[in-house]
Design a protein around this nucleic acid. Sequence first.
DNA 1: TGCAATTAGTTTCATATGAAACTAATATAT
DNA 2: ATATATTAGTTTCATATGAAACTAATTGCA
Lengths: 156, 156
Amino acid sequence: MTSRQFNSLILDKFLPYRLSIVNNKISEVLSVTYAKQFDLTPMEWRVLAVLGQNESISADEICRFTEIDKVAVSRAVTKLVRKKIISRKRSTYDRRRSILRLTKGGVSIYKSIVPLVLEIEENLVDGLSVYERKQFRDLLAKIEYRVDSLRMLYKF
Amino acid sequence: MTSRQFNSLILDKFLPYRLSIVNNKISEVLSVTYAKQFDLTPMEWRVLAVLGQNESISADEICRFTEIDKVAVSRAVTKLVRKKIISRKRSTYDRRRSILRLTKGGVSIYKSIVPLVLEIEENLVDGLSVYERKQFRDLLAKIEYRVDSLRMLYKF
DNA sequence: TGCAATTAGTTTCATATGAAACTAATATAT
DNA sequence: ATATATTAGTTTCATATGAAACTAATTGCA
């Protein structure tokens, strides 16, 4: 017997709904930081963030890391190249692949944003003990593992 | 001393990033359920879900409950009315307000979807103990409280 | 070898989205 | 009472998005 009424959906207690609300609020706060100050869209920031921790990777690898679809990545990459935040050249081993890197300017923007977003994260978990933070991360990982299984089902 | 390197951003351990990834995966699984089977957009489903637990409310109240902006709500409502899933009339007390309700057909669709999404939620937390589920909800609520404070700051 | 299948990435097109301006109704202040 | 501000909801417009079709390169296999 659970505390939830059989067959009834209370949004405020519905995990996907709560997660989505909190996620949207956090995204909003983050984007105020990097969008307004550095004129980056969320997509552009995500690509930038991945390149910040991976010296040189292809657009395709960015897709796999971020779960953003390839059209969106392609567009974000084009814009970042235009803004001279990243550079793109063709791989000599596989001439379909592009090799992406942060430019000097890109590194500099990246280094400006990182402390800002880390500070926001710190603010978010400020009231949680070290144990609670770990607990939250672990539970979220468990849930992610479960949703991955569900997604597998749909694909076959 | 934390395990994270000073000033370095590791996306896989960055809370907003993890939350966003998991949220996207869950949204995808849910939308496969209600979008493909009942031809509803995520916005439409959210409006439907709110009306499922609130007999009759206005578009504005839906905005406040769901944190969806009023333009999106207006459009979702228009579509749902067209599909005869909800009905709309003007309030006699305040003729700007609309009074929204599920139609019979809407109630029926709602009742079909609810068990499906509850089953998905159950699958998501399947591996968690009752204590862990509560723990997760509580920690998420704490984080939401913190992000609300941050949002307040930006507004002044 | 050479031809089909796959992969990386881009373009196209139709739809979704959000900000700002708008309309209509109500509340507030003088 | 009347002008002003606020609120509910819609429309407009410019941009973002994702699916599908496309190009070009590579791989697999008969």
